[in-house]
Every structure is written in structure tokens, then in C-alpha cells.
Amino acid sequence: MTVDDQVAATAAMSREQRDQFERDGYLVIRGALSEDEVASYTDALDRVYAVEEAAGRLAVDGSMHKLGAVANCPEAVGLIDHPNTFPLVWSILGWNIHIYHSHLDVHPQITIAKPYRFEWHQDGGRQNRELETDPRPRLSVKIAYWLSDVSEPGRGNFKVVPGSHVRNRIDGPPRRDVEWPEPAGSVEVCAGPGDAVLFDRRLWHTRTRNRSAFMRKGIFFAYSHRWSYGRDENDELLASTRFAGFSPIQRQLLGAKLATDGQVPGDHQWGHYPETTPLHGFLKRNGLLDPAYPPLRP
């Protein structure tokens, strides 16, 4: 790693990136992964898909949507704190974070008839009904790593309404099976293998159907504050010898109980003891805490 690479790996989100993210609700990071990384992560994902296929656990259309990305594909651990994307995450959410949700996705070409379903949504489930503010709080962000070519529409692209993260509602049908026009201003996000998309969980979005001959492949990680409850089933991973070899920050992101330093009662999800939190220590050592931005205040 060169000096320039080290600077890039520890650089906070730029003002231009922040302005775009706050305006549109998402960012496309071109070339986030190298060609070698794309090949390596694709091989790992293909191995998981082959196991699921052999076990008869794929959907009727041959697709795979498997929760617990690192638990089911440990080779994917390098993505969770990748230097080309992770600084954007902590720049938005701060240091008291973990991965509360992740999944491995493979979607082949649609070859069977499927009934209409209005799939537009915001991430977070019930929080979009139970939080009363307008707009609702951000709470989490998500990174989609694209391993296949979705550089043209019709390939199962991620589809969004730019700027809709500050709108609690969009126009939609009375039931999801009632055919309805696409939301005004919606666009398919086009990305090549190795590109990544960071988006605010409140952004209204959907996965389009893959009408192409390309196999749609991606790995997704959703980050939130550690006081939020995790969806991933990581107990077996956390107890494994392989997990012990992950870096302290990687263990934090995957939900490890952090060790006490002997001076305080120990870390917990509310972040009262930042000195026991690996990512806080990393940012502090690199001068990346920012007193002007509350989530990053020292």
C-alpha cells in the first residue's frame, strides 16, 4: 500500500460526497473493488450458491437471497471495512456502529411468469410505521457491492427515487398486487462489476427483475448504531476460531462483545465507553474525530 493509498483508506467523506449523499440519498463508488477482488468475491459467492443449489434451497426461479453474508461466506469479511467504502459509512453514522443486516444475492434471468407486485419500499420494516417524525431518522445506511455487470437497465438493477429519503411516503397502490405506475423520477442505477452503491435506508427503492442473460450477483451490508438489534445469525461465526483472526474493527462490526480494559465496566451497545471500541480508537489515532459533527465528536 502506498502513502496515497493509506491516506485514501483513512480519509473521511468529502464535502462534495456529503452534499450529494444528503441531496440524493445515495452515492455510486466507481471501481470500489479491483478486478482481482471482483474475481475473488465472485468465486466465493458462487461456491455458496452451488451449496444452496445442491441442497435444494434456491427459490423457484433459481435465485438466492441469503442472510448473514460473512456467517455464510467468511471470505466476504474484507468487504465490511473496505478502505474504498467504509470511511463513507463512519463519516455518516460515526464510530458506534455494527452490521445489523447483510445478505448474499444471486438472481438469474427471469424465465417464468411472475405476478405483479409493487416492491417499492424503505429499509427498516416496522420502524417506518412506528417512528413518528417527518422525515423519519436515518438510523442506518447500506452498501451494495456489485459483482456482475448491471451497467445497463434490465439486469436486475437497483432502482431508486433520488431525494426520496426525506419523504415518508410515495404514491402507491392500496395493495401490492394492484398494478401501479412507477414513482415519478425513478431511475435504474447502472453499475459495473466492482462498483458499490451507498444509500440511506430511507431512500425509496426496489430491485428490478433481471431480464438479461447476465446472472445478477451482489453482496450487501447494512450498518447501524450498535444499540439497534441485529438480524444476522452470527452466533456460530462469533464462536469460531476463524472469527478470532478477524481484526478488532471487523469483530466490532459483526457484533462481538468487546473486552473490558480493566478500568471501566466494559463496552456495550450504547457507546458510553468509547475507549473500548476499536473503530473509535482507529479514528482517534488518525485524527478523524470531528467536534463539529456530533456522531464523530471526540
Rank of each mutant, 00 (worst) to 15 (best):
T2G: 12
V7F: 06
M13T: 04
R15W: 09
E16Y: 05
E22K: 06
R23W: 05
Y26R: 02
V28M: 01
G31P: 02
G31S: 11
A32E: 01
E37G: 01
L45V: 06
L45Q: 10
D46G: 06
V48P: 01
E52M: 14
E52Y: 14
G56W: 05
A59C: 09
G62K: 08
H65T: 11
H65Y: 07
G68C: 05
A69Q: 08
C73P: 08
L79N: 07
H82L: 02
P83S: 04
N84R: 09
V89Q: 03
S91P: 00
L93W: 00
G94N: 07
W95L: 14
N96V: 04
I97P: 04
L104M: 14
A113L: 14
A113V: 13
K114E: 15
Y116K: 14
D123L: 13
G124S: 12
Q127Y: 08
N128Q: 10
E132S: 12
T133A: 13
T133E: 15
R138I: 05
L139F: 06
S140T: 06
K142R: 10
A144C: 11
W146Y: 12
G156D: 01
G156R: 14
N157T: 07
N157I: 02
V161L: 12
P162Y: 01
P162C: 00
S164K: 04
D171K: 09
A184S: 07
G185S: 06
V187N: 04
E188P: 01
G192P: 00
G192K: 06
P193I: 00
G194W: 06
D195V: 03
D195P: 00
W204P: 05
H205F: 04
T208S: 13
N210Y: 13
N210H: 10
R211M: 09
A213T: 12
A213S: 10
M215Q: 09
R216A: 10
G218V: 07
A222Q: 13
S224M: 00
S228C: 06
R231Q: 14
D235C: 08
D235R: 01
E236N: 13
L237A: 05
L238D: 08
A239D: 11
F243I: 08
P248S: 11
Q250G: 09
Q250H: 14
L253G: 05
A256Q: 08
A256I: 02
L258R: 14
D261S: 07
Q263L: 13
V264I: 15
T277Y: 15
L279I: 08
F282M: 02
G287L: 02
L289Q: 09
Y293L: 13
L296S: 13
R297F: 00
P298A: 15
